[in-house]
Simulated scan of single mutants.
Amino acid sequence: MTTSHRVTTFELFFDLVYVFALTQVTAFMAHAHSGTGVLRGVLLLALLWWSWSAYAWLGNQARADLGMLRAGMGLAMAGVFVVALAVPEAWHDAPGGLNGPLVLAGAYLFVRCVHLVVYGLLARGGRELVRQVVVSWPPVLAGAGLLLAGAAIGGGVQTVLFTAAIALDWGVVYATSRRGGWRIHSAPYFAERYELFVIIALGESLTALGVGAAELPVSLSLLAAAALGVGAAMALWWLYFDVVTLVARRRLHQAGSEDRLALAAGAYGVGHFPVVAGIVLTALGVEGVVGHAGSGHGLGWFSAGALCGGAALYLGGLLLFGRLAVNVWGPFRLVALVVVAAWTPAAAALPPLAALAGVVVVLAVLAAVETWWFAELRHRVRA
């Protein structure tokens, strides 16, 4: 792979199964309509994120639209699609058919194993990379064992074992990756892959907005909710793509091999998860607003918690990404995080449109302030 390699159309095709998967997770949390359901949804989202991130790293080794890598990613697409199909039954198996939780865990294990097998084949001749792939097998298999055990037991034990599996897999792989044998051959490619996944999450947020409005009669309140929902998505896009990603991409490109590896594993591999999770939770809250746009009653704690908590998590993710990628904290973003989190009780009591409008105003003001404050930096980075 050359250092100027860019994302291929096959990888964009590969990402489409994750669009469906994110939609399934959002629907799972909406159906559960509880804090436990949201926690379980976040765990499912973590599994999806870790599997996608693994293939983003794999795409740095060779062109994804050619030969062995295309075949491997094609198999992984099928596995992820099965995971997505099993999401509604992730904790409660439906009568008839196969056991849903076990299907989900087994399909996820298949996706992770395909990744390591293909990585191992592509790594032939590179001693450090082969060693890194070998070191990655034990936590993957141990984590898969916990997933399968949790799926077999079910209930609260399943939640605990799924959490332990994710912590084990993420923790060991991250610890061995920061100074390990992985290599980032093309920094622009790597950054672009993660930026495109944020676009996928934002697209899913608009899909959730449409799903919430699909079966409702067109009314002024519905149109207002739709406009506010699009405004929220636009603000989330602005806060991520306007400046920080451009600076981070340049930093990744200029870093030496070891520093680039640590930056990729930290700022992108781990630091992007709260960004993506924040978008999905915000979308869940927006869907609740749209579904009750004409109601004069309060939005309620579930939708308000998802809306405000999701926006706060997103801002927290941006703070973490900025700290890991460019070694700065965003004071404006920290203030906005506190404000949007503090808005939760008011959002729960206020009518849905007012609750969403408050979050949109906070995000829009933050975007406007940062655009003004960092005007010179924005110009310099783009130039």
Rank of each mutant, 00 (worst) to 15 (best):
L281V: 05
A201S: 15
A375N: 12
H5V: 12
P101W: 01
W50G: 07
A367P: 03
L313Y: 03
L263N: 04
R124A: 12
Q158L: 05
W91Q: 10
R250W: 10
V247N: 04
F14R: 07
V244Y: 02
R63M: 04
L141T: 02
G322R: 06
L85T: 13
Y174F: 15
T9G: 10
I184M: 08
G145A: 10
P217I: 04
F10G: 11
F10P: 04
S136E: 13
T245G: 02
P217T: 07
A341Y: 01
A32L: 04
W182H: 09
L129M: 11
A86Y: 01
V135Y: 11
R323I: 00
V326Y: 06
R250T: 14
T282D: 05
L353D: 08
A283N: 12
L148T: 11
E192W: 02
V135K: 12
V111W: 01
A347N: 03
A232I: 12
V19W: 01
W182N: 07
T36D: 08
L168A: 11
G210R: 13
A355K: 00
T23H: 03
R193S: 05
E215Y: 03
L122N: 04
P217V: 04
M77D: 04
L168T: 11
M29C: 04
A123M: 04
S205G: 15
W170M: 09
N60I: 01
V328A: 15
S51E: 05
L319R: 08
N60D: 13
A76R: 01
I153W: 09
E128L: 14
L350C: 09
A233M: 12
V157W: 10
V133P: 02
V340H: 03
R179L: 12
R112P: 03
G210I: 03
G97I: 10
I153R: 14
V270P: 01
V340W: 05
F28M: 02
L228R: 05
L129Y: 02
A306L: 10
L261Q: 07
T176L: 10
L16D: 06
Y174M: 08
R333M: 13
F13G: 08
G317A: 12
Y119A: 07
V359D: 02
L209T: 08
G171P: 01
A191L: 08
V275S: 02
